[in-house]
Design a protein around this nucleic acid. Structure first.
Length: 595
RNA sequence: GCCGGGGUAGCUCAACGGCAGAGCAAUCGCUUCGUAAGCGAUAGGUUGUGGGUUCGAAUCCCAUCCCCGGCUCCA
């Protein structure tokens, strides 16, 4: 009923998501201050998919507060208060906020370089904010408060912990609802939930947190992944090695890991006066294999691969299902090569990634290229700054040359070289960090790794650390969510379930199962005296790719009715069944096929 | 590690100071059946663990372990 509404020609552009989200966080703070006067305000930025506000209140927020706060926010929005931006000299703002005891705002202003700072005011509420905001609160409609959480002030664990309230905001009702549907869908696909329901893995209090136990169905997936990886690596000229799970302290002192990563390693065990550590990575062991024999430039590149089990003492609060664990099986390999060979080797690794993405149906990916700190080389730098820079240039050139989709992220490199994190997006658009690769110029020298060059002089090789399939733990966690538990035939723990109609089919069903198993297929039998609908339901809930229905008519015809979960089906002769399924397994068909 | 929320049957959950329950799964019987739940019966528990308060504790308090949402971290 806004009579002053401007004509369409002069209508202001619709608010952007950033404006909506900033404004929502402003109104959130306003509502909280009204409900709990004296709450100190910290910061309320717009974030991907939403916004949050950090608050320091004598009131301890509980989830039940969220609807109360949200109701107050909606009341404020109904008032259609204009947001008014004002500029104030820095000193004046400092004085004003310190007089109010807004210590966090004071610190924020102190960190701002500009001579003036901006406030946004609506009604009687004013907040320090850079903006931008929407014109008035009436434009804020499609938002929802989601959760409360603790957050360290300025992300520093040594500083006070504030209370953070998260919300989401969109420009349309449809977008908000779509996002909520996505969250629901994500919850349904949660690998922890599906992993349990499908009998893939479990945790046990007495085994310990972060130490997954792989159940038979999980082990079946592991075996398939591993054999695929081994096949791929063999074809790419990798050699397989095996190394122990522990080693002496001196190796990690030499590698340089111990000073940096001691906190993330399980404490050492000591015997015969020597400390031994569980290995948190395979690199030093592989370096020792490289060093085990004299190497010539003719031998390079040397590619050593191992599905090595590593142990990392992740903090208890960091553990998360299969995604962050304390024992992990890595699809690891180290490539030792010359500077000249670097680009080809690096791109071959990238191509292996792309092939994996294709096979697993990963459509969106990005390589995060992590370099050294922007200013100087920082503490992580070991020695030889020229070589460090050169390595980064080499990596970046290889990425460009190979037309690899990458983004540059400064200051997140490993201590021995630049890092490439592989981000992928699952079928429902959730982001995962699957794997991380490093280019290492530092550690081979520390291990005195050398090869004889053409002139017979010793030279230090470059080392590429690569793990395209990451760890079994994280990769299978990703696959569960990516496929929603409906694995392609080659990975499915149970590939086919034979469902009988009457007792008369029990014997032929058993014979067929034995035949298929002998062919190498994972087959289960359901001969219980249950109705077919019941059996189909159970097999569907177990997400078995194929159901083979065997009734009197099928038995007479010498075939089964091969059914997929969505109900499509076709008869397949006993004699043709194994080959049909094996073909799909060989070809790694993404979804079950009905002839 | 930090802030907050949780932990009840194999699973999903109820009971919230007064006899610990339901559905599904399981077991046993009946049913021999054609495309996502056939019928009946039985069994299933030291309410995560250890203390405390109380006539009485799943319920209130303390400690501890584990899980969840975040923060921090992620070689």
């Amino acid at each position: 009923m806004d009579k002053t509404q401007p004509s369409p020609q002069t209508a202001p552009p619709p608010p952007t998501l950033e404006e909506l989200r900033h404004s929502c966080s402003h109104v959130l703070a306003q509502a909280v201050v009204q409900l709990w006067p004296g709450t100190k305000l910290a910061i309320g930025p717009a974030i991907e998919n939403g916004f949050y506000y950090d608050l320091d209140s004598s009131h301890a927020f509980v989830p039940e507060d969220l609807p109360v706060i949200e109701e107050r926010m909606r009341a404020l929005c109904k008032e259609r208060q204009r947001f008014v931006r004002t500029e104030h000299p820095r000193e004046e703002a400092l004085k004003e906020f310190s007089s109010k005891g807004e210590i966090y705002k004071v610190e924020l202003i102190e960190g701002l370089p500009d001579a003036t700072v901006s406030y946004y005011t609506n009604g009687d509420f004013t907040d320090l904010c850079r903006g931008p905001h929407v014109r008035h609160t009436g434009l804020l409609k499609h938002f929802k408060l989601m959760s409360i959480a603790g957050a360290y002030w300025r992300g520093d664990e040594k500083r006070p912990m504030l209370q953070r309230i998260y919300g989401i905001a969109f420009d349309t009702k449809e977008a908000l609802e779509a996002h909520l549907v996505l969250l629901e869908e994500a919850a349904k696909r949660d690998h922890r939930k599906l992993g349990k329901a499908l009998g893939i893995f479990t945790f046990d209090d007495e085994v310990g947190p972060g130490l997954p136990l792989w159940l038979p169905n999980g082990a079946a997936i592991i075996e398939e992944l591993e054999s695929y990886a081994k096949q791929t690596e063999a074809a790419a000229g990798y050699q397989r090695v095996k190394t122990p799970h522990i080693c002496k302290e001196s190796m990690y002192l030499r590698s340089g890991h111990l000073p940096y990563y001691k906190d993330s390693m399980f404490p050492p065990m000591e015997f015969e006066g020597v400390k031994y550590y569980l290995k948190p990575m395979n690199c030093p062991h592989h370096h020792k294999i490289f060093a085990a024999e004299p190497r010539s430039y003719r031998d390079l590149p040397v590619r050593l691969a191992e599905y090595g089990t590593c142990y990392r003492y992740e903090q208890s609060g960091e553990l998360f299902g299969l995604m962050r664990v304390r024992s992990m099986q890595m699809n690891d390999a180290h490539i030792y090569c010359t500077l000249e060979q670097f680009q080809d080797e690096f791109l071959a690794v990238c191509r292996m990634y792309l092939e994996y993405f294709r096979v697993f149906g990963i459509e969106k990916y990005v390589m995060r290229f992590s370099t050294h700190a922007a200013e100087g080389l920082g503490k992580k730098y070991v020695d030889q700054p020229e070589l460090w820079k050169k390595t980064e240039e080499m990596v970046e050139q290889a990425l460009i040359h190979g037309k690899i989709n990458y983004v540059r992220v400064p200051n997140e490199a490993a201590f021995y070289g630049p890092k490439i994190d592989v981000q992928v997006w699952s079928a429902i658009g959730r982001e995962f960090t699957l794997a991380t690769n490093q280019v290492d110029f530092a550690v081979p020298a520390r291990f005195d790794l050398t090869y004889k060059n053409r002139e017979g002089k010793p030279e230090t090789p470059l080392c590429i650390h690569r793990a395209p399939l990451g760890t079994h733990e994280r990769f299978i966690g990703f696959l569960i969510e990516h496929y929603g538990g409906r694995f392609p035939l080659w990975l499915a723990p149970m590939q086919l379930k034979i469902l009988t109609l009457t007792d008369n089919e029990a014997a032929p069903a058993q014979a067929l199962a034995e035949r298929l198993r002998a062919a190498g297929l994972r087959v289960e039998l359901d001969v219980r005296p249950e109705k077919l609908g019941h059996k189909i339901r159970e097999a569907s809930l177990q997400k078995v790719p194929y159901q083979a229905i065997l009734g009197p008519k099928d038995a007479a015809a010498g075939s089964v009715m091969l059914r997929v979960q969505d109900g499509r089906q076709a008869p397949v002769a006993f004699d043709a069944l194994a080959e049909k399924l094996l073909k799909e397994v060989r070809e790694k068909t993404p979804a079950p096929l009905i002839p």
